[in-house]
């Protein structure tokens, strides 16, 4: 049982591809939603590795989702393979600007400043009624893929596979980043920023790079969510959306790449079933589940899996 990590990834992607064909359609939709969210959760995890907790990932999540919406509305672009890079690019651009502002801050101040920025975007989206549709949001028509018109179930399946591919790419990128010097240095900044600085490493550049990567990932998640849901509204920029991403990151565990993705899937399922079986007390169930995981599984849901995996590897 000595599998390389890449093989595990390939296996999981294969499982997701099969899942798209055999699972009921509503579950496939939920899975696509969870994967999109999972990518955004990865963006939180990238920052957490550097010791930063962002409560404002909604800025990029919503920014990219609206970017897709505007591209469709203003320029009539419906090609998914154009929309996704454009949205991600815009999110990275936003991140480059916001990063100049927030990269000096740490701890709760970083959290609150990112929160403030995303709430300013929320305010603008609500206020600029004529452009953004205000709180009603804007509709995202079904995208095309390589010029192919899609509809109904086919469209859902294509968007799902797009999410699978994007998630795999994002997971691979984050894995590479974590194993690269920039990733290790980010981890070191979290452990002791002063020491890293004394060792001569450029702390602010390391943090800024992590922030850029994170904004791109959050943007990717936002773009996928927009294409999947077919509607964007300012709620995506509200602080509870960003808070939810942090929540899922901890649920899944922040030590690995697969943990957050698994966390997102489990979270969506818990929430869906809580809605079904306890429409009057679902918040309590979600809260209680979260509490139990934090208190009894400190490494997140994925940590037991990781332990078994390590043991199997010897």
């Amino acid at each position: 049982m000595n599998l390389p990590r890449g093989a595990l990834g390939v296996l999981l992607v294969a499982a997701l591809v099969v899942a798209g064909l055999v699972l009921p359609r509503w579950l496939v939709f939920l899975l696509a939603l969870a994967l999109a969210k999972g990518v955004a959760v990865l963006s939180v995890v990238v920052l957490m590795r550097a010791g930063l907790v962002s409560f404002g990932q909604g800025l990029f999540f919503a920014g990219a989702a609206y970017a897709a919406g505007f591209a469709m509305r203003w320029w009539g672009i419906r090609e998914a393979l154009l929309l996704v890079p454009w949205s991600v690019g815009l999110a990275v651009g936003l991140g480059a600007l916001a990063g100049l502002l927030v990269a000096r801050y740490r701890d709760i101040f970083f959290a609150m400043l990112t929160l403030a920025l995303s709430m300013v975007l929320y305010g603008v989206l609500i206020k600029a009624y004529g452009v953004t549709g205000g709180s009603d949001g804007i509709r995202i028509p079904t995208p095309t893929l390589l010029g192919l018109q899609l509809s109904g179930d086919d469209a859902r399946l294509v968007v799902y596979y797009l999410a699978v591919a994007a998630t795999a790419a994002a997971a691979w990128a984050v894995g590479r980043y974590a194993a690269a010097p920039a990733g290790y240095l980010a981890h070191a900044v979290r452990d002791n920023e002063v020491r890293v600085a004394y060792l001569g490493a450029p702390v602010s550049r390391i943090v800024y790079a992590a922030f850029l990567l994170s904004s791109g990932l959050a943007g990717l998640g936002g773009a996928l969510t927009a294409l999947n849901v077919g509607h964007v509204d300012p709620g995506l920029a509200y602080w509870t959306t960003s808070g939810e991403l942090v929540f899922i990151a901890v649920l899944g565990g922040t030590g690995t790449v697969l943990g957050p993705l698994a966390g997102a899937v489990v979270y969506e399922l818990i929430r869906s079933y809580a809605f079904k079986y306890a429409p009057y007390a679902w918040q309590m169930l979600v809260g209680a589940a979260m509490l139990l995981i934090i208190l009894f599984l400190p490494g997140g849901l994925w940590s037991p899996v990781e332990r078994v995996w390590r043991r199997a590897q010897g």
């Binding site: 007390a281 679902w282 309590m284 979260m290 934090i294």
Partner: peptide, 8 residues
Amino acid sequence: SVFLILED
């Protein structure tokens, strides 16, 4: 989490 629980 406490907040969510207290809400309900």
